[in-house]
Simulated scan of single mutants.
Amino acid sequence: MTNTATPAHAFVAIGSNLADPAQQALHAFSAIAALPHTRLCSRSSLYLTAPVGYADQPDFINAVAHIQTSLTPHQLLNALLEIELLFGRERTFRNAPRVIDLDLLLYNELQQHDTGLTLPHPRMHERAFVLAPLVEIAPDIAIPGHGRAADCLHATHDQDLQRVDDGWQRH
């Protein structure tokens, strides 16, 4: 069942640090764009970032996709988890290296916390690797309960990240 009301605007974080992470992220954009009742509106550049939590692993490639969807938040989350499975994601331990990680960051201005889904995504307001690509494609976006993403990004100035040339041209 899909939400037949006006499609929602949602933002999805993409992360990878295994099996050619830049290509994994680019393939993830395509997989997200192919979801039913969903349109990819924009996508960020790719960013190279150090791992958070478990440090003994390769650096990550991170990005954010802006989509418009008629899927409900739980349907969208389930679809993202299916994409992770298709890409070969294995959940061995918290913050482990991964082929792909897809996190539902925002779904309109919805704030909710229930089994399996918290919106906005917890800690997104503290992580430059989420905020920089988000602000790149939605400079005026606010994170419900935390204020403007750009202001949150400014507070993460001590976190290193580097934009990566992925060959994609903005028009």
Results as ranks from 00 to 15, higher is better:
Asp56Ile: 09
Ile137Asn: 10
Thr92Glu: 14
His125Lys: 07
Val130Arg: 02
Arg39Gly: 08
Leu81Arg: 14
Trp168Leu: 12
Leu134Arg: 02
Asp160Pro: 03
Pro97Cys: 03
Thr115Ala: 15
Asp103Gly: 12
Ala149Ser: 05
Ile100Tyr: 11
Thr69His: 02
Leu104Pro: 04
Leu105His: 01
Ala10Thr: 03
Leu40Ile: 11
His66Ile: 03
Ala138Ser: 13
Gln57Cys: 04
Asn108Arg: 12
Pro51His: 08
Ala138His: 05
Ala50Pro: 06
His27Phe: 01
Tyr47Glu: 06
Ile83Glu: 10
Gln159Asp: 09
Ser30Val: 08
Gln75Glu: 14
Arg148Asn: 09
Ala28Trp: 00
Thr92Phe: 08
Pro36Phe: 11
Met124Thr: 06
Phe93Ala: 08
Leu18Tyr: 10
Leu26Val: 07
Arg43His: 15
Ala5Tyr: 05
Ile14Val: 15
Val135Cys: 07
Ile143Gly: 06
Asp166Thr: 00
Arg148Ala: 15
Leu134Gln: 03
Leu80Ala: 03
Leu46Met: 12
His9Arg: 06
Thr6Trp: 00
Leu18Ala: 07
Ile32Glu: 10
Ala5Pro: 00
Met1Ser: 15
Asp160Asn: 09
Asp151Gln: 13
Ala33Phe: 11
Tyr47Ile: 11
His157Glu: 08
Ala150Val: 07
Phe29Pro: 01
Glu82Asp: 12
Pro120Leu: 14
Asp103Cys: 08
Ala34Lys: 12
His157Asn: 13
